[in-house]
Design a protein around this nucleic acid. Structure first.
Lengths: 123, 123
DNA sequence: ATACATGCAAATCTTTTGCAATCAA
DNA sequence: TTGATTGCAAAAGATTTGCATGTAT
């Protein structure tokens, strides 16, 4: 694990938000001024494939990166806003129902956030 | 609902696969030779926002479109392959745990498919 | 010395947009 | 006719890649 990869892993783990590669890059630059966007992408990709971080993909928005620790997401179908949810862990329940070994699961609850709801009501 | 939108909705509902916009477009052309990729995109987007179809986003791959009917997905984290799963419906269980009205949920189980597993073992 | 990581720029790919022409109510 | 939909081309945005350079072991 290289210096940049370590920095990035820390950035992800310390952040309460769901950061895009661009945002990770901006924070990485605070620690390593020479860093470049592609390096952020490359290391995020590496960390993801090694299973050190999660990646949340919502169509129409850039990928966002997240801690590994199991948790679920509330996704606004209008603006893509992402919030964490701590729901019961479904791992066992799901594993029983599937024939193959499960690595992890991603559960996203779709809703419309307050701001978007308000906007739609003001039409 | 326009002619193209209807065609596309039928294509999605009749397909057993998870079609990309490109694939939808190719099938749309069989019914309407003049159709164009952007029209497929526009109508898919319309159908999605109207809640007629689902959209499955896996990072690194084009979006795939799917029937509305609740079901879950098995996603290969190596090649992005998508398969349907019929697991127990978690709607009520989840709704009880969140404070806001839930529109729907997306549950993706991550695994490594047979082909990818074999490739990795042959290294 | 060697392999790997980086910086940089350019390429790629998906998806969206602007606009003019066309279609349908 | 009037507004929405289409076809088309171009733009936009996110992510990846190739390559030369730098770094660490």
């Amino acid at each position: 694990m290289t210096k940049n990869a370590k920095y990035i892993l820390d950035i992800i783990n310390e952040s309460k938000d769901h950061l895009t590669a661009e945002q990770v890059y901006m924070r990485l630059k605070e620690k390593n001024k020479k860093a470049v966007l592609a390096t952020a992408y490359n290391n995020l990709s590496y960390l993801y494939h090694q299973g050190f971080i999660r990646k949340v993909s919502v169509s129409g928005y850039p990928d966002r990166y997240d801690k590994m620790k199991q948790h679920d997401h509330l996704v606004c179908i209008r603006c893509g806003k992402l919030s964490d949810l701590l729901l019961e862990d479904l791992t066992e329940r799901l594993q029983k129902q599937i024939g193959v070994p499960m690595l992890s699961y991603d559960l996203e609850i779709n809703y419309i956030c307050d701001e978007c709801l308000e906007k739609e009501q003001n039409l």
